[in-house]
Write a protein that binds this DNA or RNA. Structure first.
Lengths: 135, 135
DNA sequence: GTGTTTGCAAAGTGTTTGCAATTTA
DNA sequence: TAAATTGCAAACACTTTGCAAACAC
């Protein structure tokens, strides 16, 4: 099995050039279980994996991946951007004390009786965030 | 009717000294309809109303009001903090293009089948944000 | 080769902080 | 007068940007 081939395909399909940096970040993001990252977390992880990539490129890459639908951005906290590798419909616990997100499976919350979007707008996403703190 | 008396009472009840700045901000926030503000919006508004108050004090005041339950903070966008004068249970449309929040009445969305909070934590709030953009 | 992507450092935005001066009770 | 609050400016955290060098095709 050729290493990286799944990530190569993933990037090509998305219309992004499979550069060394994008491949390495894709591997970190999509190589295992679903996860929630901030730019800083991913950058640190890349360093530790001996992947030289600048923080600016990590930011660019996270946004590019989000634009092509490989990631989903979660507004859990007004001070930091979180990205989720699970782009399917589901919601989150936000552990305020740890600054950490946890998935809630999509079928564990019912959201219904949704109002229609305001005149002239379309719905981009529906986020349910349950903020919890230590007790 | 003594001007400001309702705001004096409101602040005293909340255990906050009714300073000139807090009174003026309370009047702007709670003197009319429910509203959503950022620190910058409120600061600008205070200037226009000829209330001299520093941006730092606006930030402090917004957080103090939030701590005592007069305001509620909404994480609608990872880049800016929004505060809502309506602290009752309800949800929001976030108009991404305008950076603006709109209330959705509490009874217009059902959220049920909620999972229990993770071990050792308690639920602080449940936010439903429907992100919409112009079409 | 040509256009894209990267890294760097600088700049930008929103927010918090330290501390002296001011205000409130 | 003692304690709380304010304003200022500096510091901070996170993010974006401009541009020359490096890379992908």
């Amino acid at each position: 099995m050729r290493p990286y081939s799944q990530f190569l395909d993933q990037l090509r399909t998305a219309g992004l050039r499979p550069t060394r940096q994008r491949l390495a970040l894709a591997k970190l993001l999509f190589g295992g279980e679903d996860r929630h990252v901030t730019a800083e977390i991913l950058h640190d992880e890349a360093q530790r994996a001996n992947v030289r990539v600048s923080l600016a490129t990590v930011y660019n890459t996270l946004h590019q991946f989000t634009d092509v639908g490989l990631l989903r951005e979660i507004a859990a906290d007004a001070s930091k951007a979180y990205f989720d590798t699970n782009t399917t419909k589901h919601h989150h616990f936000y552990l305020a004390d740890q600054g950490m997100l946890m998935d809630i499976p999509g079928d564990e919350i019912n959201v219904d009786n949704l109002p229609t979007a305001p005149e002239g707008t379309k719905v981009d996403s529906i986020d349910v965030v349950i903020r919890v703190s230590n007790n």
